[in-house]
C-alpha cells in the first residue's frame, strides 16, 4: 500500500514544478506517520553560527540549527543557496577543496567536528555520504560494498557484511546471483542503492545525501525514498533535494535556504526557516518559504 502511494507521489513529482501548487505538495505529506515534536531532544549535529568559505568568498552565512537523531532532515532551496556546501561541511568533504574553510561551531554528538585534533578520515567513516551521481567504483558489486570495510581494516566476515548491507539497501534479491559482475552493469537506481549499501558497510550513524535521486527516474526514486524511510530507524539522514515533493514525502524536518545578496552585492546562502516538515509546507512563517514551496520562484 505504502509502496503504491510512494510511486504515485513519485509520478506526481515528475510533473512540471512551476504548475505545482502548495496544496499538491502538502497532499503528499506524512507518508511515514512519525510524530515530530517541535523541539529536538536527541541532537546529532549542532550548528551555531556556521559559515563556509571558499577562499575569501563566503558561500554560507550564519547557520544555526540542530539535526535530530534518527530523523530525516531535508535541506531545500534554490540553486546557489549553499545547501550542498553546508552538507559537505558536516563530514569535512569540503576539506578536499583547496581554500575551503568552516567557521562557527559544528558539533557531532557534542564534539567539535573542526577541532584541531579531529581526524577527517574518522569523521567521514562515521558520517557517510551519498552523492547526486551514483559513483559506484569500477569494481564488482561485491567489491564495491567491501571497499569501505577493507580500507578501514574492519575485522568482519565480509560475505556476511556484504549480504547484510545489500539486504538493508533493498538490493540483495536483485543482485545476489551477480555479486562478481561489474557494478556498471546495474541500472542507475540499482547503482544508487549499491552506493547506499557501500555507505552503510562502514557502520556510520549518519548518512548525508546530496540530491540522491536527481539522476533517477520516478520508479527508482520511489525505491530510494522507501529505503530512506527504512534506514531512518537506525540512521540519522540529512538530504539535500531540489524536489519539494520529495522533501515533503520523506522528511521529518525541513530547512529552507535561500541565496541572498548582501549590501556589497555578494551572493551567499542563508537559512530562512527550519521546522517540522508539516509546518514548513502547510504554515510557513516566512513569505520567502511560502513563495518557494508554492513554485513562485526557484
Amino acid at each position: 500500500m505504502k509502496q503504491m502511494r510512494d510511486s504515485e507521489a513519485a509520478k506526481q513529482s515528475s510533473s512540471d514544478m512551476s504548475t505545482t501548487g502548495r496544496m499538491d505538495v502538502a497532499a503528499s505529506l506524512g507518508s511515514h506517520g512519525r510524530e515530530i515534536p517541535e523541539t529536538i531532544s536527541n541532537v546529532v549535529f549542532g550548528l551555531d553560527n556556521v559559515q563556509v568559505f571558499y577562499g575569501d568568498f563566503q558561500a554560507v552565512r550564519d547557520v544555526s540549527m540542530q539535526i535530530g537523531r534518527n530523523e530525516i532532515t531535508a535541506f531545500i532551496g534554490p540553486s546557489g543557496c549553499g545547501k550542498s556546501t553546508l552538507l559537505r561541511s558536516f563530514n569535512r568533504m569540503n576539506d578536499l577543496i583547496p581554500g575551503a574553510r568552516v567557521a562557527g561551531s559544528l558539533t557531532y554528538h557534542g564534539y567539535d567536528v573542526y577541532a584541531p585534533n579531529v581526524d577527517p578520515i574518522e569523521v567521514r567513516r562515521r558520517i557517510g555520504m551519498v552523492f547526486q551521481k551514483p559513483n559506484v567504483f569500477p569494481k564488482s558489486i561485491y567489491e564495491n560494498v567491501a571497499y569501505g570495510p577493507k580500507v578501514n581494516k574492519m575485522k568482519v566476515n565480509m560475505d556476511d557484511l556484504v549480504e547484510e548491507c545489500l539486504t538493508r539497501a533493498a538490493l540483495w534479491d536483485e543482485v545476489k546471483d551477480d555479486l562478481k559482475k561489474s557494478a556498471y552493469a546495474l541500472s542507475g537506481g540499482q547503482q544508487q542503492r549499491l552506493v547506499i549499501a557501500r555507505c552503510i558497510a562502514v557502520k556510520p550513524d549518519v548518512i548525508l545525501m546530496d540530491e540522491p535521486c536527481a539522476s533517477l527516474d520516478p520508479i527508482a526514486t520511489a525505491k530510494v525514498e522507501d529505503l530512506m524511510q527504512e534506514l531512518a530507524n537506525d540512521y540519522t539522514i540529512v538530504i539535500v533535494t531540489h524536489n519539494m515533493q520529495q522533501a515533503a514525502r520523506v522528511s521529518d524536518r525541513t530547512a529552507f535556504f535561500t541565496a541572498d545578496v548582501d549590501s556589497a552585492g555578494v551572493r551567499h546562502g542563508r537559512l530562512v526557516e527550519y521546522g517540522p516538515t508539516r509546518s514548513i509546507f502547510t504554515a510557513p512563517n516566512d513569505p520567502r518559504t511560502e513563495d518557494y514551496i508554492s513554485g513562485r520562484f526557484g
Binding site: 567521514r124 555520504m129 552523492f131 551521481k133 559513483n135 567504483f137 571497499y147 580500507v151 578501514n152
Partner: peptide, 14 residues
C-alpha cells in the same frame, strides 16, 4: 571522474 574520489573519501579512505 572526481565523483569516484569523493565516494572513496566519504567512506573514510585515505
Amino acid at each position: 571522474p572526481g565523483g569516484l574520489r569523493d565516494g572513496a573519501y566519504a567512506l573514510g579512505a585515505t
